[in-house]
Simulated scan of single mutants.
Amino acid sequence: MVVRIAVTAVFISTALVSSALSSTQPSSGSCSSRPSIYTTTPGYTNPRDAVVADVLLDRIVFSDGVQVQSNEFVYPGQVLNLTYNGPLARFRMQNGPLASVGTPDLRYIEAEDGNSASISAQDRVMFADRMELAWANPNLNNRVQLQTQAGYGFIVGLQTQIWDSNFADDARPELFIFEDQGNSVLTIQALDDEFNNVGTPVEVRAVDIASINPTKVWVGRWNQDGSPQSGTYELKMASLDLSRLGVTHLKWFRITTQVQGGGEASADLKIVAVDTSPAPAAQTMTFD
C-alpha cells in the first residue's frame, strides 16, 4: 500500500522540537553562502544618482543558481508592539523625494498624532503602521531610519508564512535584512502565532552585514527639512537561513536593538523574506 505523508507535518514537528531545546542566548552570524542581489534604478543609468528616487530590489540569486523574482518576495504585512523611548527627530520613515514606489517623503514618529512635542502611545501605533507600508514594497530607499543609541523593539508579521528548503543551514536563506552602512546590532527572535518565543534568537552584528554582491547598492538620506544629505550611503545586507533561528517555518518574529558586548544599537532597516520550500506538489513524499 502506498502511504503519502505531507512534508509539512514533519516541518511542524521539527519546529516544536527546536523550540523546546533552544537556548535563550542569541547565536550570531549570517548565512555563509551569500546570495547575489540585483536591483534596478528606473530612469537612472548611474545607480548613485537614483538615491533620490527608486532603488528597486529586482531578484535574488542563490549560490546554487536558484533565482527568486520580485513577484515572489514576501514582505512584512504587520508591525506590532512598537517600543521606542528615545529622543525626538531621530526615528523616522524615509524615501527618496522623487520616488514613485512606496510611501513618500519623511515622517518622524512624534508627528503621527499631530503633536510633535512628544511621543505618545498613538504615535507608536500609527508609526508601526507606517513602517509596514515602507517595507511592503521593493524600493530599498523606502526604509526606517534610527539615528540614536536609544534603540527600539517591535514584532513583524510577514504577509504569508515562509518555509525552509532544508532542515539544516543551506545555500538558500529566507530572511534578508538590509541596513545602511552595516554598522548596527539587532536581535531577531522567532515567535509562534501567540507571540511566544520559539527557536533560538540570533544577534546580527556588523560582521554579519556585508556589501551586496555582485554590485554595491547606494541609497540616500535626508535632513529634517527633506533636503538630501551630502553624499551617498552604501546599503548592506545580512541573510539568515531559518535554521539559524531554530525553526523550519516563520511568520512572526521580534526585532530588538538591545546590545550585548558594545557596538552601535541603531538600525536602519528594510526587511524582505522569501519562501524557499518546494512547490506544493513537491511537498508530498511517497513511501512504499
Results as ranks from 00 to 15, higher is better:
81 N>V: 00
236 K>G: 09
90 R>T: 15
207 V>Y: 11
118 S>Q: 12
46 N>K: 09
178 F>W: 07
108 Y>I: 07
8 T>W: 11
73 F>S: 02
208 D>R: 05
122 Q>I: 11
245 L>I: 01
94 Q>Y: 07
19 S>G: 14
254 R>C: 03
86 G>E: 10
53 A>Q: 03
229 Q>H: 08
208 D>Q: 03
174 E>D: 02
284 T>G: 00
28 S>R: 14
234 E>W: 08
18 S>F: 08
221 R>T: 11
47 P>V: 10
209 I>F: 03
146 L>H: 15
23 S>G: 02
141 N>C: 00
137 N>S: 07
128 A>L: 03
249 H>S: 09
129 D>G: 07
102 G>H: 03
132 E>S: 08
185 V>M: 11
28 S>G: 12
121 A>Q: 11
180 D>T: 15
91 F>Y: 15
30 S>R: 05
61 V>C: 02
207 V>E: 15
70 S>F: 06
123 D>E: 07
221 R>H: 12
235 L>T: 06
105 D>P: 01
131 M>G: 00
5 I>W: 12
32 S>P: 08
116 S>T: 13
44 Y>P: 01
180 D>H: 14
271 I>A: 05
85 N>Y: 12
180 D>R: 15
172 R>Y: 02
88 L>Q: 10
127 F>W: 07
71 N>M: 05
103 T>G: 04
147 Q>P: 00
38 Y>D: 08
21 L>A: 08
167 F>N: 10
46 N>F: 08
22 S>Q: 02
210 A>P: 00
158 L>R: 08
148 T>R: 01
9 A>R: 13
16 L>F: 08
99 A>R: 02
53 A>I: 05
214 P>R: 04
210 A>D: 14
50 A>C: 08
247 V>M: 00
109 I>R: 04
58 D>I: 01
271 I>W: 04
205 R>E: 09
58 D>V: 01
21 L>N: 04
262 G>V: 06
134 A>R: 05
43 G>E: 03
219 V>M: 09
235 L>D: 07
156 V>S: 05
190 A>W: 02
209 I>V: 15
72 E>G: 08
229 Q>N: 10
216 K>D: 15
63 S>D: 04
59 R>W: 07
173 P>H: 04
87 P>L: 09
36 S>T: 08
217 V>G: 04
132 E>N: 07
